[in-house]
Design a protein around this nucleic acid. Sequence first.
DNA 1: TCATTAGATGAAGAAAGCTTCAGATTAGGA
DNA 2: TCCTAATCTGAAGCTTTCTTCATCTAATGA
Lengths: 210, 210
Amino acid sequence: MSQPSHALLEPRKSPVQARSAASVEAILEATVQVLLSVGKDRLTTTRVALRAGVSVGTLYQYFPNKSALLQAALKRHLTAVASAVEHVCREQEGQKLQPMVTALITAFLQAKMQNVKTSVALYAVSSDLDAAKIVQQIGSRSTKAIVQMLTTSPEPLTADPQLIAFMLQGLMTGVSRKLLESPAPEKHFDAVRRELISMACAYLHACSSR
Amino acid sequence: MSQPSHALLEPRKSPVQARSAASVEAILEATVQVLLSVGKDRLTTTRVALRAGVSVGTLYQYFPNKSALLQAALKRHLTAVASAVEHVCREQEGQKLQPMVTALITAFLQAKMQNVKTSVALYAVSSDLDAAKIVQQIGSRSTKAIVQMLTTSPEPLTADPQLIAFMLQGLMTGVSRKLLESPAPEKHFDAVRRELISMACAYLHACSSR
DNA sequence: TCATTAGATGAAGAAAGCTTCAGATTAGGA
DNA sequence: TCCTAATCTGAAGCTTTCTTCATCTAATGA
């Protein structure tokens, strides 16, 4: 009688004992693994539970349905990336533009490459109707942070910071996605990072002297 | 006895009479509409057939299964975009870098915005295991065209053209996707296009004088 | 006109997956 | 130690969806 079920996608139960927290963790981890090995279409709750080493019943104790499970996994990953971005942005406030974007891009890429497989696996989830909202929602956290950072730079910007942040995000997500989905992401990581920084710097330079 | 079914995803039958060609067209169109209205997860072959104004049986006369249907719809759209890109690239051979990318970006965006809804709807399909292969396959057509175009410019490039093409594609797809998934794509279309060109030009400028 | 081929239909078989729930097991505290 | 609450289990019901195929209708050409 604690909560009327107004939010159908929230966890049904919060872990109290240590073992249940471990179950939730295992389930989320297994979700990514299954996603990666068989794809979203052939992902079944039973399969996830099996891989997690628990029974389906346990899974449904913490996630009201399959969709919620996928969204939870996605949210977890996106939040990690957004936090990383917010962190550098705060750190770089007041700096000049070039070091700013260099730090931003480095941090973003690192967060994505931290667990390449997770990132790739979750692309399949992210384009789903409801999931897209989550992506935008959490993505806007990054936008805000970037805008805030940009406005603290001593170098004046001629274009709308909001627009610049939009472009930078588009650039980073687009390029990193292409990289992650390429045959050997690690191999070209450094070269791509360099180019990414080079492009962003060139762009910002143009923005601050137009 | 015409063809042994070696390719499970190819159409079962090729339209001979006009009405069947119309059916195929209607089915493909309906696929996108259903995708858009209820999302990939709730897309059923029956629903698509209903929307197309044909029976399920007819659908299965031309597509061996649901997956093939989705892939066909995706392929159709990607091919159109790739063709547009190839076309401008050929057209711009020998030009200077700046007009090149300006034309490239303009053509790419136009192809995507031609039918905004189709593009958005198909994002949900594109991230699926098998579909990802198609995306890469057709995407590489564009890469080749861009590389080819770049190498014909009189301005010398210091970086690997392959890498530059990669970056440009990442930039264009990333930004256009963000735009398409935003609340009002048309509204910011022009501003984004300008920035896109600005960024690409700044980048290429850096590439040709480093 | 009529035979033959192309195309369309949709009820129904079969499979697959989601989700539940009644009962078993484990942990924590009195 | 023993009771209570937390957690786990997995067989099975229920629903949904895919896909087939026997049959009907429309077009083509001789």
